[in-house]
Amino acid sequence: MVIAIIGVLIALLLPAVQQAREAARRMQCTNNLKQWTLATHMFADTYRDWFPLGGMNGTDNPTKVQNGRSYHRVTWAVQLWPYIEQTALYDQYDFNEHFHNGPNPATLRVAVDGYYCPSDKVGAIQDQGDANWRVLGNYTANMGNAHLHHTGADAAAYLGSPFRIRHVSRLSEVTDGTSNTACFSELIIASPDATDDSRGDFLNNEGSPGFMSLLTPNASSPDQCIQCKDSAEDANNVDFRRIPCSSVGQPHEMQMAARSQHPGGVMVSMCDGSVRFVSETISQGNWEATLSTYGGEVISE
């Protein structure tokens, strides 16, 4: 009888322990998002109102952007290094070279704790056999209601976002309110130890530097990436329901949803530094309103 009771108690406890672990991992993930957002605020204090550049592509480099500075291929994460206590990496990085040239690849091979959500694949890197391999990461910046590079139709409908490719935004542009506007979220590292899927390659401007409101969190509609692993395109594979993907050729066709291993939704940091859980059942309209910086929408929930 005593054993039966103990059995019952263990049965009661075990699943709870697993849930507690996931809750702890999620808390750490929340903290990482908060750190990236606070780093962004420190950046905006240093550079007078400007957000970091979401990313620079490889055409006509160096390219001067609105803040008066010039860039080669790079993403937001490198610019935030000094504010997440990675000054040593920042000092080694040469901003006069693309991320894959000069001393830069070595700096992109350091697996910083803050790159990874503990619920996903901590420490994941690309295939070390590739000459340009880098570490991967779970965090991704809000690029609003547009593709990675804007199409003509995107430009007409665009309602602002903290981060963009080839353009910088201002903190003071966030007229929807920093507590109503997303800053960072997470995605699932699709293919560690390989180079066959762009998702997780957040240090590459054509990898996964941003997420868009074109797709709701954990959407069944596929991400559109420069590279998708076969299983993510195969309707009969489990990956198709978690990380669906369709390969495209051009950055103006690229779009990525926020995705996560946390059950039922994703963690999102708002531009005021608060972090919240957004359910994957959020409506397309509310998600667009959450990602826009100056849409003037009312978020109705």
């Binding site: 959407a219 509609s221 993907c245």
Partner: peptide, 16 residues
């Protein structure tokens, strides 16, 4: 292919 609710009242679905 993506299916976006006309009134944007649901999550967006789609496929490959």
């Amino acid at each position: 292919i993506s299916f976006v609710a006309v009134d944007k009242s649901t999550p967006t679905g789609g496929g490959v």
